[in-house]
Design a protein around this nucleic acid. Sequence first.
DNA 1: TATTCGTGGCA
DNA 2: TTGCCAAGAAT
Length: 348
Amino acid sequence: MNPEALRAKLLAWYDGEARDLAWRVGPTDGRAGVRQDPYRVWLSEVMLQQTTVPHATPYFLKFTARWPTVTALANEDDGEVMAAWAGLGYYARARNLLACARAVAKDHGGIFPDTEEGLRGLPGLGPYTAAAVAAIAFDRATNVVDGNVERVVSRLFAVETPLPDAKPELKRLAETLVRDDRPGDWAQALMDLGATICKPKSPLCDRCPVASACAALATGAPETYPHKTAKAIRPHRHGVAYVLTQGDLVALVRRPPKGLLGGMLALPTSDWRSAPFTEAQAQAAAPAPADWRHVGEVEHGFTHFTLTLTLLRAEGEADGVIWSPRRDLDGLPSVFLKAARAALSNLI
DNA sequence: TATTCGTGGCA
DNA sequence: TTGCCAAGAAT
């Protein structure tokens, strides 16, 4: 199948089967003058980085209701935005989100740059997001390559090189399918196909509009594409989290601005290391002298390690902490929300 | 170039 | 239960 026929089939499929997403106007980009709001496109794309649609959707609705424009977001306090992002993960995205909003407000008069190159210069907009916003919001014929596109293209062309080595090759192949016609729809059609039909595990090839053009399907084992190199095992780390209360108030700290969970509110913790903590070590690392009681453990999986947090609880005073009511704990990253709930529950 | 950076759902 | 995985970017 030639590229033009493939494009026609996939775009026709998208016209009828496009997903109804909170941030999506519809399969009308670049046609009939319908243009999506760059702010909403940008916000959704950042939230969707390594994040599923069901997880991102309520956050997108919350953010757009509270901050309808990029200027409104730019004028908000850091802590409010970080708390609103809590639970969505990859918190550098939230820091870059604010930095980007403020750059747009200050350096661009509140208007997003309308080219891939211009967008690429903003914080948090890498190769994928800059290309996606340029295509979807500004009708630019960019090469939008995410994990979906890599999978779809690797199957269409039966690319044998394993990821991540195959990335440059996949990007070149994707480029051969980009045209000036409906670039935003094309990008989203590829991603929708990857998300709903050309899925990682059990692709629904019998429903695929371009199955007849798929070299991987012709091999008889389309699900084995893209090939991948073996992953390293995830190490295990141990730490102690301290739940210090004064009645309804819980002692929190603001984590350093960079690194893991950077800039987020958190429970005070020990350092996290490979060796478990002895009772004495856990007591010694406490943020304040108190009658610390061992109240349990919680497990939490991060991207590149798993963590066992020993939970110590006490009632008492401490310096340099942020006293926060229990009802505000939803502004914490999930690992600390999980730990605080476990320590404060009556089930332990 | 290789690592670092979350979370929740699912097979 | 465990590993895999989702619209990647920054360093």
